[in-house]
Simulated assay, not measured.
Amino acid sequence: MSARREPISRRERPAKPALSRQWIVETAVRIMRAEGLEKVTMRRLAQELDTGPASLYVYLANTAELHAAVLDALLGDVDLAGGGAGDDWHDHLFAVLTSYMRVLFEHPQLARSALVARPSGENYLRLLERLLDLLSRSGAPREQVAWGADTLLQHATATAAEHSTQEHAPTTEDDWNALTVAVHSVDEATHPAIKAHMPALLDGSVEDRWRWNFDVLVNGVTHTPVPGGTAD
């Protein structure tokens, strides 16, 4: 007859570390880097953290809030100094937004999520503070600066989402080739505007177009009054 197995007291088991929002988000970032954003779910996190999904809802309301928190964590990689862009506020602003785009570009799924996510963490607030500070140096009224920073972020996010998705999509080259053939083949009688604006319609690198779009937006922000705004 075998000896009776002595039960192990709970007191002798290694204690699990207490959950915290920071630990949950750090784990989510690690999962995203290794497996992709689609794997960052409450259930997957609960398995990784050796707890029940219900425990996570004490710290995060839903998956959307979780993804927003992951985005905010990654925004800590944005170069807010502007990459040594000199003393010009315009160049600094361009450099900061370009760094923001590069962070999103590395994570296509996160870039798409950023189109609807509403980060509110400290890294996002630091980014917003920096953008407002730089744009305000243009001398534009505060309403234009406020709306302009939001517009610039939206455009940078959309650009990153578009091009990072294309970069990693298997059909991107085929799609581009099909579009190129289509616009080059239009009949001038039925599509005179397209014909008149070729080849400029498809010309230009991603970098050149981003810089031009940035300049267009900044010029518009600094010279277009906000409806009902003050001209201070």
Score class of each variant (00 low, 15 high):
211 R>E: 12
213 N>L: 15
173 E>R: 10
214 F>Q: 10
171 T>H: 08
206 V>R: 15
203 D>G: 08
179 L>P: 01
194 I>L: 06
201 L>K: 02
185 S>A: 11
187 D>M: 03
182 A>V: 05
218 V>Q: 02
202 L>C: 04
215 D>S: 13
212 W>M: 11
168 H>C: 07
216 V>E: 15
196 A>L: 11
196 A>H: 04
171 T>D: 11
162 E>I: 15
188 E>P: 06
196 A>Q: 12
191 H>P: 00
194 I>Y: 01
161 A>K: 03
192 P>R: 05
195 K>H: 09
180 T>P: 00
187 D>Y: 03
215 D>L: 08
200 A>W: 02
203 D>L: 12
218 V>N: 01
217 L>N: 11
188 E>I: 02
183 V>S: 01
165 T>M: 14
203 D>T: 04
180 T>V: 04
164 S>H: 08
161 A>T: 12
193 A>Q: 10
190 T>A: 12
183 V>W: 02
181 V>L: 11
200 A>Y: 09
161 A>C: 06
190 T>M: 07
183 V>R: 01
191 H>N: 04
209 R>A: 10
162 E>Q: 15
178 A>K: 07
219 N>D: 14
205 S>K: 03
194 I>C: 01
217 L>M: 13
174 D>H: 11
207 E>M: 05
193 A>R: 05
203 D>P: 01
215 D>A: 14
164 S>I: 04
162 E>P: 09
179 L>C: 08
178 A>H: 07
164 S>G: 08
192 P>I: 01
205 S>Q: 07
189 A>I: 03
175 D>F: 15
201 L>D: 00
201 L>A: 11
194 I>H: 00
182 A>C: 06
205 S>W: 09
189 A>H: 05
168 H>W: 09
175 D>L: 14
170 P>S: 07
203 D>Q: 14
168 H>V: 13
